Simulated assay, not measured.
Amino acid sequence: MITAKNITGLILAGGRAQRMGGIDKGLIPFHQKPLIESTISRLRPQVGSILINANRNITKYAVYSYPVILDETPDFSGPLAGFSVGLKACKTIPTNHTL
């Protein structure tokens, strides 16, 4: 069985937010706090570690004390670019599991 400590959660916050007028979605207020805070609080009990993929406002995301990783390409390649760097930065490896 895979336990929570063997799972890394990846928050994708690296987009340009073109449909949101360029406002960084993770920093938009949701219930009087930035959306990323709600995401972290829901994700934290389910995983052993968290990574944040962001390409803007790096210092604002770094305040949450989780590693902030940037896409390898500077052209905002989309969510697959975030998944790619997330997989490379992931340190958790499930052991003794069956598919």
Rank of each mutant, 00 (worst) to 15 (best):
M1C: 04
M1R: 13
I2R: 09
I2P: 01
I2S: 02
I2H: 03
T3G: 06
A4S: 11
I7M: 13
I7C: 00
T8F: 01
I11G: 04
L12D: 02
G14S: 04
G15V: 01
G15W: 00
G15F: 02
G15P: 01
R16Y: 02
A17R: 10
A17G: 08
Q18I: 15
Q18A: 09
Q18L: 15
Q18E: 00
R19M: 14
R19N: 03
M20A: 14
M20Y: 11
G21S: 02
G21N: 10
G22S: 03
G22V: 04
D24H: 08
D24Q: 11
D24F: 00
K25R: 08
K25L: 15
K25P: 05
G26I: 06
L27E: 05
I28C: 01
I28M: 12
P29A: 11
F30C: 14
H31L: 08
H31K: 12
H31C: 06
K33S: 09
K33R: 08
P34T: 06
P34A: 10
L35K: 14
L35M: 13
L35I: 05
I36K: 03
E37I: 08
S38A: 06
T39I: 14
T39D: 08
I40R: 06
I40Y: 02
S41L: 11
R42S: 11
R42C: 12
R44H: 10
R44S: 13
P45L: 10
Q46K: 10
V47S: 07
G48D: 07
S49Y: 05
S49A: 15
S49G: 10
I50E: 02
I50P: 01
I50S: 05
I50M: 02
L51D: 07
I52N: 03
I52Y: 06
N53L: 13
N55P: 02
N55W: 06
R56A: 15
R56I: 05
R56D: 11
N57Y: 13
T59N: 12
T59M: 09
T59Q: 12
A62T: 14
A62Y: 08
V63Q: 14
Y64C: 01
S65G: 03
Y66D: 15
Y66A: 07
Y66F: 15
Y66K: 13
P67T: 03
V68L: 13
I69G: 01
L70F: 03
E72Q: 06
E72G: 13
E72I: 15
T73L: 12
T73Q: 12
P74S: 04
D75Y: 05
F76Q: 03
F76C: 00
S77Q: 14
S77F: 11
S77Y: 10
P79M: 15
A81Y: 02
A81P: 05
G82M: 02
S84T: 05
S84C: 10
V85P: 03
V85I: 14
G86F: 00
G86K: 01
G86S: 01
L87S: 03
L87E: 02
K88V: 00
K88D: 04
A89Y: 09
A89G: 01
C90P: 01
C90Q: 07
C90W: 09
C90L: 01
C90R: 07
K91C: 08
T92Q: 09
T92I: 04
I93C: 04
I93K: 12
I93T: 07
T95Y: 00
T95M: 14
T95V: 07
N96M: 10
N96S: 13
T98L: 10
T98F: 11
T98D: 09
